[in-house]
Design a protein around this nucleic acid. Structure first.
Length: 637
RNA sequence: CGGGGUGUAGCGCAGCUUGGUAGCGCGUUUCGUUCGGGACGAAAAGGUCGCAGGUUCAAAUCCUGUCACCCCGACCA
């Protein structure tokens, strides 16, 4: 055994674990509060146990899976040029005050008071800590670029922890931070970002996951500055849209809608379909309720959402309070990020009381509400900015709010009922052919833009005549171009060749390690239990002795375990004094990829039974001296 | 934070309406018979009914408060 004790070795031995010597508390039933498959399976198979809301023990099997994920993460990040370090989970609260994240993170930040009465935070992420570290270590461009990462427990006081390991208050995360003097060129942020994108692709591919890399809500630098890595599975809580031709994929929060032809008669143009009728619509909370009551389809309604501009103190002094009113079709959803981008203003959903004081009858607002109000820009989604239905070849029929409580109107017409002609107000066309307006202009109070969430069936933004298709996913990784947000706020400044001082440009890159384990189970399980991809399985091979008292089986179990582990295979040996039934049930539950069963019948013919967890058949008998090679081939295959 | 729900043995549940000495299944322990997909028989251990008040001769059960957990929504670098 001397070789295995060598300090320097190129061998990696597998482990052999006897089931009776470890803790695998399988259960027939899951706790009633476990609903999602990963939660049920990880509990029943003895991987996790709840400690509190959103807090779990990782039992030996789970910890082995987590370590395998971490090993892959380390190898790929090290190969991508990153260095591992470890920062504390506990940090002084002042660090969060510098970047105002004590406010922006809000109640999600765990706060801990120490014996001296000083406030500390349990870190939800480490931008502040690492920026503070770098301030003390880095002062020249010659020391950059750098890419540093850690794998560590993170804390977030989630409003509602749920779905087992998928949304926890304490979880394991890999977080990386890169530091640069430039965005472009050698050593720039983009180079590292691309390297991390490749590293993430390698990591999730090596984990055996079916995943998509999708564009996510952009960072402060703009462009495609953020990508999410999503495990594809129907139970995912995020909706993603993909273009089947170009490979473009994006989170629904971000997804662009491809070019659509402008209305044939022009935006807003169309004859009234009838006189504007007022209808009393009491006690109808949603668009669908109103639509049903008015006997129209939601797509014939206009939904009007009031945002308030999050003004800087300077703008507030100069322009006063400013508002953005977004109009979309009733069956569409307003996308706040697109409203922000189209208007060029940071916005937030208006406070109901404040908006009502301004004269917006929240819940019953129509486009008419903006007319005559100062400091209001109306953004109209292109699908709502029409008056003529080109498909039907006749003028559109709109139902919208009555601008007073419990009233809606029918036969709203853009040109007639706004009080001003919108075609005139929005007479300037953007380079995309949209009418444009501006918040601080005089009479151009409205503009047309893409401000709604994309939907399946919408045209792809990257391929002609192609429709977007929907999928669902679980976010397991996120890479992000941070820019100078933290370096500027905290003063991480370096001098360049000409002694000019610049804030350092940063990127950050996260992987939810514990969530990846759960997402993998969501993606890969059946009615009987977990089906691990070999790279993440806690053990590669499960050897089951049908009768532990049978000496031939004992001898063979030891022999096969030794041969497999010497080849680097991790072996779990079911040596429990149980009847075969429960052993097979447990084998399926815990999901080890290869099961080798030592039983009298097969051994009488010089063989053992060999079965893959993922296959539905009953397995086959394999000659004893061929089984090691066959197992390794199956694991590597 | 809004809406809904649940706390009774390790797990899953019944009992509560109509107050009267706490039960079932699984699991656990022992013995026997079994032994290839969650065996059978016998015996046994295990619960201050989430917690605190109150009503009552008497509270798992009725009342008040409180805590915990879960689900839907809001939220989610």
């Amino acid at each position: 055994m001397s070789s295995s004790r060598s300090v320097v070795t190129n061998r990696k031995l597998g482990v052999v674990q006897k089931w009776s010597h470890t803790l695998i508390p399988t259960t027939r039933e899951a706790p009633k509060d476990a609903e999602v498959p990963s939660h049920v399976m990880l509990h029943r198979a003895g991987y996790i146990r709840p400690v509190g809301a959103g807090i779990y023990d990782y039992l030996p099997l789970a910890w082995r899976v987590l370590q395998k994920i971490q090993d892959i993460v380390r190898e790929e990040l090290n190969a991508a040029g990153a260095s591992e370090l470890l920062m504390p989970a506990l940090e002084p609260f002042e660090l969060f005050k510098d970047t105002k994240r004590d406010e922006t993170y809000g109640d999600n930040l765990f706060r801990v008071k120490d014996r001296k009465g000083r406030m500390n935070a349990l870190a939800p992420t480490h931008e502040e800590v690492i920026t503070d570290l770098m301030i003390g270590c880095i002062n020249s461009y010659k020391q950059l670029p750098l890419n540093l990462y850690q794998i560590q427990t993170k804390f977030r006081d989630e409003a509602r922890p749920r779905a087992g390991l998928l949304r926890c208050r304490e979880f394991i995360m890999k977080d990386a931070y890169s530091f640069h003097t430039t965005v472009e060129g050698a050593g720039g942020l983009n180079t590292t970002y691309d390297a991390m994108y490749r590293a993430y692709t390698n990591i999730f591919t090596r984990c055996g996951l079916d995943f998509s890399a999708v564009e996510a809500e952009s960072g402060p630098i703009g462009g495609s500055a953020s990508h999410e890595f999503m495990v594809n599975c129907v139970s995912g809580e995020d909706t993603i849209l993909k273009c089947p031709v170009s490979g473009y994929a994006a989170n629904v929060e971000k997804c662009e809608v491809g070019p659509r032809p402008a209305p044939s008669k022009g935006y807003f143009a169309g004859e009234p379909t009838g006189t504007l009728e007022e209808h009393h619509t009491p006690g109808l909370p949603g668009i669908d309720d109103v639509a049903a009551f008015m006997k129209v389809k939601p797509e014939n309604m206009l939904k009007t959402i009031v945002f308030k501009v999050d003004s800087t103190p300077e703008d507030l002094a100069k322009y006063g309070e400013e508002w953005i009113v977004a109009v979309v079709r009733g069956d569409h959803d307003v996308n706040e990020g697109k409203v922000r981008d189209a208007s060029g203003c940071k916005v937030k959903l208006a406070d109901i009381k404040e908006a009502e004081a301004k004269g917006f009858a929240i819940g019953f607002v129509s486009p008419r509400a903006v007319v005559g109000k100062k400091g209001v820009l109306m953004l109209v989604d292109r699908d709502a900015a029409v008056g003529f239905d080109d498909k039907k070849g006749k003028s559109m029929f709109w139902v919208t709010g009555g601008d007073k409580k419990d009233y809606h109107v029918k036969h709203f017409n853009w040109q007639r009922d706004l009080g001003k002609d919108p075609m005139d107000a929005a007479s300037h066309l953007s380079d995309k052919g949209f009418p444009t307006g501006s918040l601080r202009g005089d009479d151009k109070y409205l503009m047309v833009a893409d401000i709604r969430n994309a939907l399946p069936g919408d045209p792809s933004p990257r391929a002609a005549n192609t429709a977007l298709v929907a999928g669902r996913g679980i976010e397991v990784g996120h890479i992000f171009k941070l820019g100078t947000k933290y370096s500027q706020a905290m003063g991480l400044i370096v001098a360049d060749e000409t002694q000019q001082k610049h804030p350092v440009i940063m990127g950050c890159y996260g992987i939810g390690v514990s969530r990846t384990m759960a997402a993998c189970v969501e993606m890969s399980h059946d009615a009987d239990g977990i089906v691990w991809p070999a790279p993440l399985a806690p053990y590669h091979v499960l050897i089951t002795m049908v009768d532990i008292k049978n000496e031939a089986q004992q001898t063979l179990a030891v022999k096969l375990s030794k041969e497999l582990s010497e080849q680097g295979v991790d072996v779990l040996l079911d040596d429990r004094d149980e009847r075969p039934g429960p052993k097979f049930k447990d084998a399926d539950l815990i999901g080890i990829p290869v099961r080798i069963t030592l039983g009298e019948k097969a051994m009488a013919t010089g063989g053992v039974e060999f079965k893959l967890r993922k296959s539905k058949d009953k397995g086959e008998v394999v000659a004893i001296d061929a089984v090691v090679a066959k197992a390794i081939a199956a694991i590597n295959g």
